[in-house]
């Protein structure tokens, strides 16, 4: 099978899976859901790492890769930490 077709199959199945799991999230947690899923979309960092890897030094493409690493890392770290902060507040009330 053509890799592109496999990719499309994977893409469509992943969307179906996403719809399935996200509809079960209660409205109370919609903000952490957004910031948390946002952190996940920082997975672009993987692409950024691959794009910025190079033997050559002064290449515009590689430089864009570096920038991508910065933004994606910000996205990942910021997203997870801020989500954790919010969820901590929600969790705190369980015992009381």
């Amino acid at each position: 099978m053509d890799p592109f077709v496999i990719s499309i199959v994977v893409f469509v199945l992943a969307i179906a899976l996403g719809v399935e799991v996200i509809t079960k999230v209660p409205s109370t947690l919609h903000t952490p859901l957004m910031s948390g899923s946002n952190a996940i979309s920082g997975i672009t960092i993987v692409g950024a790492l691959l794009a910025s890897f190079s033997e050559t030094f002064f290449a515009l493409g590689v430089f864009l890769g570096f920038l991508a690493v910065i933004f994606a890392t910000f996205n990942v770290v910021g997203g997870y930490v801020v989500t954790n902060r919010m969820l901590e507040m929600f969790k705190g009330k369980d015992g009381k």
């Binding site: 994977v10 179906a16 899976l17 996200i22 993987v46």
Partner: peptide, 19 residues
């Protein structure tokens, strides 16, 4: 051609659309 990005991107895309 990276499945990690395709899958997770789709998960987040679906989440945003539902919201």
């Amino acid at each position: 051609g990276n499945f990690a990005l395709i899958i997770t991107g789709a998960l987040v895309g679906a989440s945003g659309i539902i919201l």
